[in-house]
Design a protein around this nucleic acid. Structure first.
Length: 940
RNA sequence: AUGCGAAUAGCUCAAUUGGUAGAGCGAUAAAAUGAUAAUUUAUUGGUCGGAGGUUCGAUUCCUCCUUUGCGAACCA
């Protein structure tokens, strides 16, 4: 008895089914690193068209989270696909290294700069800390399989970079966009310093809320807006405030332009009847708050009609203030009239800017009023309340008074309530030299993906105030300017001085500025000028990477692509745009792509306190980086990106499908040498040509989807291809031929040729996404090839099946529909216990004339396509009554169990089993394959 | 006063100019045991976030609402 099983060509490969990515990926990574693969790729792509994706720098603090992973992986996918398409696509990663969070962490360790630690040492420690953070994050990015020049990233704290930041400031100054101005900032009166947003925390505070009358000065004009006659009754606009100490700085009263306002007559205080202005919507609540029961609404008008009316300041008799319009005025609380002190509120400041009202600067750094402030000079804002109330009482201006508990900003260090205080700051002006208009114009020529990105950034630009770029911090690039001690004007030779400073910073880092001896640089002028000691907003640092990285690296601006999370419309996209326009008058990018944020299974944002974060490090250690990469690719990143254990599990399932498909392709290429065994298309079995044609079509689609950054479509298509066209049809059909045909016969070589083409293509399709797996696969594909899949280009040996071909795509689509119908009937027969495996079955197909002519083309090979032992194609007219209907038009059929014996070797049930005397358990086909020339196939 | 988005089967995604929704995965059942912690087959999943409106007809257009993300604001 011969061991026929040994005569089969069963699948065999060293490519393991079990991915074991957590262990295998680091090994692959080591190979990449020791081969210096990224450098090899760059060397190989010299002279090709460049594609520049400019990296937005993550902040150098903390471990990377899943959002970082998404961003870097998307960038990596794009760049790897561009390289497959023949572009030179370098990737220079960067980090944002200055700023407050780093300062705070260092402060926690070694104490405050200037008091416990000298500034210079503090900055050195910050530098050290940032570098450590960079190193940690870098390791994880590399582990994710992201290719780039990790040895030479750009760091905003590199000396050269710091110098370029200063140069950028110089160019912006030169172009007339830098102005000095005031801005209200959070101010800690105890700490005596400005605070950044991050240093603010909200606590409950009990404030005194008061209602204050502002008498109307020009009564006739005011009343004209109402056409009301109130005789000689007192007339005032009433404001409500919780910060009485800001009243000395009051310079206006704001109404809402759209709200209706009414004149209300009632008997209020000791002075008897009076008339006040209130927002109509608030009359009831205000009157009840005042405890007034009888009142009369006299007339109504729109807020807009009162603009410009003059009012009397409640206790400065010499000061009149005007009614202004403020968007921030609402009917949520108060009276509908808001007192405006541009010194002490952002909204107030904006109103002030709009109406040309300057700040007064009454409150000093320590919280006391300056000598300029009448009546309250020398008092402290924390203790002035009683004096203010007394002044109001005295002038009969206090209408109501109460306590109010509310959430209020406090200094996170001293836990004391903060005030807003206008202080001198440096701004990049949106108006001074037409920056805003130029930005808005430039936005139109940028391609925003998705399109709504344009709306978004335009909306933000529309509301963007002058950009305050100065900070009173330690770990930041200095605003390296000299200003005149008296006039505060910039030194006339600022441009030259900036370049000199930049040269020194390039050499010694930013400390060069702080150590700089002005005399050495300014000569005789030294006494007249002082160094600015402010530092730059870190958004300025990262904003000028187009200069410090691209220009510096000899790369043309604009870059082809910026790609960041949607929050960067506010951040980096905007800071980069503004600085680039201010420097060179054009946008820094040709297109801007955004991705959403990662949320949990309920669509909620991830946060440590809720405990719903997904750690990329943990996923890499369990499922592997390729699973994260596949999840990123599979998710439509234009919206929120949902991740959960279930989703990752499903992703890992899909991964296995793709991997196993690849494995099966390889396993059937055992013994195939493309150099000698490949068949030309003309000699290939029709079905094999179809399989290659399908791949060719799919490849075109995939390339299109890579070009338009629609990776989730690629994932769907590749997965469906593996599961449907290949697993569910082609591979299932050719299994018989692969296993039972003669190893080097035409029938098998034809299929192997197809499999070889497909796996060559597949490895490239998945390479940008499943980088580790693609590389692993690459090493197992027969034939000579580049050392790495990442040194290859798209596979161009796939031949599309021409529609002129007799057995074209439409033809096989019909056959496939028939196969599906047959499968259904086989399943019925299986349920009925008629057959088990499909090879036990014989089917009779009763066809319409058209269908019959289609199926007849396959001749005897139709049974291989249907994976049954026998198929009879008969005229539909001859169908017996019991023939089953199918979903296919013109097809009825019958399934029967075969009466023939089963061939021991190929498992088909045929009449000729046992007809050969030496092989009494084999069919004729197998005999030919075992000891003859091997069968020849035409169609399947 | 808030600006820009998102919401389709348990999961990931589709749905061409408005014609009562499609894939794959999963789940369930079965087959085979020559892709075997794999494969094949069949079956099962949806008031297309909710309510109105326009229309002969709406997942698709309009309005409002709900939930949710990013940004802004957090308060006079």
């Amino acid at each position: 008895m011969t061991d026929y099983k040994s005569t089969l060509n069963l699948p065999k490969t060293a490519f393991p089914m079990k991915a074991n990515l957590a262990q295998r990926e680091p090994e692959t990574l080591k190979k990449w690193q020791s081969a210096n693969l990224y450098q090899q790729i760059q060397d190989a792509s010299e002279g090709r068209d460049p594609f520049i994706l400019h990296d937005g720098p993550p902040y150098a603090n903390g471990d990377i989270h899943i959002g970082h992973s998404v961003n870097k992986i998307l960038k990596d996918i794009i760049l790897k696909s561009k390289r497959l398409s023949g572009y030179a696509a370098p990737y220079v990663p960067g980090w944002d290294c200055h700023g407050l969070p780093i300062e705070h962490n260092v402060e926690k360790k070694i104490g405050k700069a200037g008091s416990k630690v000298p500034y210079e040492k503090f900055r050195a420690k910050c530098r050290e800390y940032a570098q450590k953070q960079v190193n940690g994050q870098r390791e994880d990015f590399i582990r994710l399989g992201v290719f780039g020049d990790w040895e030479n990233p750009y760091l905003t704290m590199n000396y050269e970079f710091e110098a370029d930041i200063i140069r950028s400031l110089g160019r912006i100054t030169e172009n007339g966009h830098l102005v000095k101005g005031f801005k209200p900032v959070y101010w800690s009166v105890v700490g005596g310093s400005a605070l950044a947003e991050a240093e603010v925390e909200y606590q409950d505070k009990t404030s005194t809320q008061i209602d204050v009358r502002f008498d109307v000065v020009d009564r006739d004009k005011f009343l004209g807006a109402f056409s009301a006659d109130i005789g000689e009754l007192p007339l005032s606009v009433v404001i409500w405030t919780t910060t009485p100490w800001t009243l000395p700085a009051n310079q206006a009263v704001a109404l809402n332009v759209d709200l209706p306002y009414s004149l209300v007559k009632f008997a209020g205080g000791k002075q008897g009847e009076e008339v006040i202005l209130l927002a109509t919507a608030l009359i009831e609540s205000v009157m009840s708050r005042y405890g007034v029961e009888g009142y009369e609404v006299l007339a109504e008008t729109a807020g807009a009609s009162l603009e410009g009316a003059a009012l009397q300041h409640p206790f400065y008799s010499e000061r009149q203030v005007n009614i202004t319009m403020g968007d921030h005025v609402t009917t949520d609380a108060g009276t509908g009239a808001v007192h405006i002190a541009p010194d002490h509120g952002m909204d107030d400041f904006i109103v002030g800017q709009k109406y040309g009202i300057q700040t007064l600067n009454y409150v000093q750094a320590d919280g006391t009023y300056s000598s300029e402030a009448p009546l309250v000079a020398g008092q402290h804002v924390y203790k002035v309340e009683e004096s203010i109330l007394a002044l109001l009482e005295e002038n009969h201006r206090l209408l109501a008074q109460d306590k109010l508990q509310h959430s209020f900003p406090h200094c996170w260090r001293t836990k004391t309530p903060l005030i807003f205080r206008a202080t001198p700051q440096w701004f990049i002006s949106m108006q001074e030299n037409g920056l805003l208009d130029a930005c808005k114009e430039a936005v139109k020529d940028v391609q925003w993906l998705p399109e709504w990105g344009q709306n978004r950034i335009e909306g933000m630009l529309e509301q963007s105030p002058d950009w305050c770029i100065s900070r009173q911090r330690t770990w930041g690039v200095p605003v390296a300017l000299f200003i005149h001690k008296e006039t505060q004007a910039l030194h006339p030779e600022t441009s030259r001085l900036i370049e000199e400073v930049a040269l020194r910073v390039e050499d010694k880092g930013m400390d060069a500025w702080f150590e700089l001896d002005a005399a050495g640089m300014l000569g005789d002028d030294a006494d007249l000028y002082e160094k600015v000691t402010d530092t730059l907003d870190v958004w300025f640092d990262s904003g000028v990477t187009h200069s410090a990285v691209l220009e510096r690296g000899g790369v043309d601006v604009p870059a082809d692509l910026y790609l960041e999370g949607s929050d960067q419309h506010r951040g980096w996209f905007q800071s980069s745009l503004k600085t680039s326009i201010a420097i060179r008058g054009k946008a820094p990018y040709k297109s801007v792509l955004t991705h959403g944020f990662v949320v949990d299974k309920d669509g909620k944002k991830m946060s440590k306190s809720i405990g719903n974060v997904m750690s990329p490090q943990k996923v890499m250690k369990t499922l592997g980086a390729d699973i994260i990469r596949l999840w990123v690719a599979a998710t439509d990143y234009r919206g929120e990106m949902t991740v959960s254990d279930e989703i990752l599990k499903r992703t890992a399932d899909s991964y296995r499908r793709i991997r196993n498909t690849a494995r099966f392709l390889l396993a059937n290429l055992e013994g195939f040498d493309p150099a000698t065994d490949m068949l030309p298309a003309s000699e290939m079995v029709a079905l094999d040509r179809w399989a290659v044609g399908q791949s060719a079509k799919l490849q075109e689609e995939i390339q299109g989807l890579y070009d338009t950054y629609q990776f989730h479509g690629i994932y769907q298509k590749i997965h469906n291809f593996c599961a449907l066209e290949l697993g569910g049809f082609y591979l299932d059909v050719i299994k018989d031929r692969q296993y039972t045909a003669k190893a080097d016969g035409q029938a098998r070589r034809s299929a192997q040729t197809a499999l070889f083409h497909i796996v060559e293509a597949l490895a490239r399709w998945i390479a940008p996404i499943l980088s580790y797996t693609a590389e692993e696969l690459w090493q197992h594909i027969p034939g000579s090839r580049e050392d790495s899949v990442f040194l290859a280009s798209w596979y161009d040996e796939l031949t599309v099946l021409s529609s002129d071909t007799e057995m074209n795509d439409d033809y096989w689509a019909t056959v496939l529909a028939v196969k599906t119908a047959v499968n259904k009937q086989l399943e019925v027969a299986r349920k009925d216990g008629v057959v088990g495996g499909s090879l036990e079955a014989e089917v009779v197909l009763y066809c319409s004339t058209d269908l019959k002519s289609v199926l007849d083309q396959l001749q005897d090979e139709l049974r291989f396509v249907l994976i049954t032992s026998k198929v009879s194609v008969l005229d539909g007219a001859s169908a017996p009554d019991n023939a089953d209907e199918t979903d296919v038009e013109g097809l009825r059929m019958l399934v029967a169990k075969s009466d023939n014996s089963k061939c021991e070797r190929c498992w088909h049930h045929t009449e000729d089993v046992g007809s050969h005397e030496d092989h009494d358990t084999l069919c004729g086909r197998c005999v030919d394959n075992v000891e003859g020339d091997g069968e020849r196939r035409l169609f399947a």
